[in-house]
Amino acid sequence: MPDPVPASGARIEVQGLTKRFPGAAAAAVDGIDLEIRAGEFMTLLGPSGSGKTTTLNMIAGFEAITAGRITLDGGDIAQLPAYKRNLGMVFQNYALFPHMTAAENIAFPLKQRKVAKSEIARRVGEALELVHLGGHGERLPSQLSGGQQQRVALARAVVFEPRALLLDEPLGALDKKLRESLQLEIARLHRELGITFVFVTHDQDEALALSDRIAVFRDGRIEQAGTPTELYEAPASRFVATFLGDSNVFAGRLGDGGLDTGWCSLRVPDGRAGEDPVALVVRPERLRIAANGAPASGDNVLSATVTDVVYHGAFRRVLVRFDGGGTGQVRDTAGAGGSLAVDQRVEVSWDVDAGVLVVDDDAATAVAAGAR
């Protein structure tokens, strides 16, 4: 594998960025601040309607801003038309010209910039090789697979040497195996080009696999931004914890004895108690399950009944219903601890430092809604 190219991408910063559509009750993007570092792979992650794509379109220049600033290496670009921002863009639907060959599609942005023919030929050839499509330049999009068409779109977006590449759900139209293959291609391109990537997705696994940092969007705002490890291991809220990976969530109130859920009392980690309402989040792979008389060990032990066992090949997901209330799931190596069956009695346990206390924003929202 070649060494990564030193970062040469642009630093992108948005300050107070807001977008309101006429007639909408709430802002699509509500005063967000975000710095994207030079050469960074930043992912905007969130559910549909959270504002991530609108944010990307404002950075690209496809959507006018209502308020705020967008800067590229310190220069305000918010009022520049898209073609003057010199940013590469890749769409979910490829957006290739069907009557042009792959090479002609890739050459299009160079011709628009009036690059010399000899230089166009050189750059197009290099771009085809970069995306592993050497020898496919004369094929029409209809003669290429979906994955090959997306590679052409990637090549077209980088052939004019932009300092940042914006990608709007670029793998959304592909099947699972092809998505995983293209994820590796995109990661390789980022390493080899050394430019800034801004990637929009609603796929949590994609975000975790590709990103240097992730900004989690919710209702037009950024709920939390950080590295994949930071967001997974130390989510700031119940929303982030449940959106970014599977979670067991125990909601309740803090007291001297730990967390009181109303149906059990749990020991919780020190240091980040927060204010009520709070929730204890424990990832499924941090739980242990004991059955068939095996002893359970851990700071927290709950009796439960198995409601389902889902086999995933390398691991299994065991769904349980806890005595007294609540449901959960345990993820362990397939076959570890013997076979399990529906309705089997088990003990579920975990160590106190396996969990993290977060703001229970779901409960806070419900309380606020009831008070109105």
Rank of each mutant, 00 (worst) to 15 (best):
V278T: 12
G245C: 14
G258M: 08
A10N: 07
G324D: 09
L193Q: 04
D219K: 13
I289R: 00
G49Y: 14
L140V: 03
G325Y: 07
S145F: 04
V200H: 12
R163D: 12
L165G: 04
P47C: 08
H99N: 15
R316G: 00
A273D: 13
A116G: 01
E230R: 07
G125I: 06
S145Y: 07
W263N: 14
P235R: 00
S339E: 15
G226W: 07
T261A: 05
F108P: 11
T53S: 15
L110Q: 09
I32E: 13
A236V: 10
G137S: 04
A215Y: 11
S118F: 05
L166M: 01
A296W: 10
D256P: 09
A25L: 12
G135F: 02
D362P: 00
G335N: 00
G125F: 05
R163Y: 06
P295R: 04
Y311C: 01
E138V: 01
V356D: 02
D246A: 15
A314Q: 02
E13W: 02
P2V: 01
E126L: 03
G313Q: 06
E169Y: 12
V124P: 00
A291F: 03
L193A: 10
S8V: 14
A155W: 09
G147N: 03
V152N: 08
A155V: 05
R321S: 14
P47Y: 05
F41T: 09
I65Y: 02
A82Q: 10
A241I: 09
N86D: 15
D308L: 14
A279R: 00
F243M: 07
R221P: 10
S8D: 00
S247V: 08
L184D: 12
G252V: 13
Q149S: 04
G255I: 11
F97T: 04
A215Q: 08
S211C: 06
V348D: 03
V29W: 11
G75M: 05
G194T: 11
L254I: 14
P109T: 08
C264Q: 11
L56P: 14
L184I: 14
I195W: 11
A103S: 15
S50E: 10
D351I: 01
L165F: 03
V131S: 06
P81V: 01
R156E: 05
L189V: 08
A366T: 00
G335H: 00
T261H: 02
E223A: 15
S297C: 04
E230V: 02
N57W: 12
E35C: 12
T201F: 04
R156Q: 05
I70N: 06
S142G: 13
F197T: 02
T53L: 09
G125P: 03
A187E: 10
G68C: 13
R267M: 03
I70V: 15
D353Q: 08
G262V: 10
R218A: 13
A107I: 06
A187Q: 11
K114C: 03
S339A: 15
V301S: 02
N105M: 09
